[in-house]
Write a protein that binds this DNA or RNA. Structure first.
Lengths: 190, 190
DNA sequence: ATCCAAAGTTACACATCCGTCACTTTTGAG
DNA sequence: CTCAAAAGTGACGGATGTGTAACTTTGGAT
């Protein structure tokens, strides 16, 4: 009962991700997006009132995917398996953290966006509590030191993603080295 | 032989820093800057052809200051003193890293900007080699593990700055904890 | 075959930033 | 006092992004 669409939701989200990474939040415009999708700009307005709405909705989609992946980790049995899986997952798609940072600067200009941003916050809370459990497990099993705050442990893991790999060490090797430093530190054990 | 200026170079740089942090690179415009300085927009064009030129020049100024601070560290005698001083310096002004990231996205649209960006690169190289020396010293004194690449050691130190301090632990205590984790790791020494 | 709702397009009015130019104001050297 | 250089202003045209409205195209239900 309707004409065929020129792009699917998946294609749209893929384009959003690609163009956000390429041009940054401010550089991402409906003009650029429309040209990328080979569609008129007005066509996009049929589905989204403005880019804030589109991007915030895309973020929800992306974060839910990430949360599901994370939950899968929780099903591994030993702590060490979980720890390894977490690292692999974090390094699997480094672009996600850039995207997440852009999500922070979406201004709330209407109800729909406010709603999406609340969803995003909710997912992040869930994500966070999921990770808290992981850290607690590590402390119970006496792997993590008890006196380090959970936030710092998680922060260490998530920030080291951004360390620039100059010298282009192959990724698996690089991940192993970072993991080792996080676990045992930079210092020799005198 | 001329009229009095309504803003000094120091005031200008201060405004640039403040507004870059507040609005981001794209959100920083001569309109915003002029209004902040209580001056007409055209007045700024008397000194800078465009914002790229202004920002790149400001970056040079800011990085030179940073480099000088860093060199002062090199004069401390023991490695441990240097290590402590480096941490204090890095955490002294966290906004610097946001600013530095913005410097990356200045497009080269004329000779002057190209020149400034080359200066910036030069300073960063100098900064980097200064830090390399520091790391080498640490390795010679058998404080740092020898098999960790220098880049990774420096990366660990510089990226941990960005770990969000939820729970608002007082800064000195927070810095100490991060330092400890970096040095000795998250794991208990089984 | 025809009809209508969803998909898509073209075009317009509005806003903002950009760079420039002609103009005025200030101020100190002569 | 005067006058020229430097500081500052206001206003314009161009470029680009935004949101909307009137239009055409498509294709399945009847």
């Amino acid at each position: 009962m309707a004409r065929e669409r020129k792009f699917t939701k998946e294609e749209l989200y893929h384009a959003v991700k690609h163009l956000l990474l390429k041009h940054g939040y401010d550089g991402f415009t409906f003009t650029v997006l429309a040209s990328f999708l080979d569609v008129s700009r007005a066509a996009i307005y049929k589905y989204y009132d403005n880019k804030e709405e589109l991007i915030s909705e895309y973020m929800v989609y992306e974060l839910i995917k990430f949360l599901n992946d994370l939950k899968a980790i929780g099903e591994k049995k030993t702590f060490n398996e979980q720890f390894d899986a977490l690292f692999d997952m974090i390094f699997a798609d480094l672009s996600l953290y850039e995207i997440r940072a852009m999500g922070m600067q979406i201004p709330i200009i209407n109800k729909k966006i406010k709603n999406n941003k609340q969803k995003i916050s909710g997912i992040i809370v869930e994500l966070y509590s999921s990770l808290q459990q992981f850290v607690e497990l590590g402390k119970e099993e006496k792997v993590f030191k008890k006196d380090i705050p959970n936030n710092l442990i998680l922060g260490m893991i998530f920030e080291t993603v951004n360390i620039p790999n100059r010298g282009n060490i192959p990724l698996p090797e690089w991940v192993e080295m970072i993991k080792d430093v996080i676990c045992h530190g930079l210092f020799t054990k005198d």
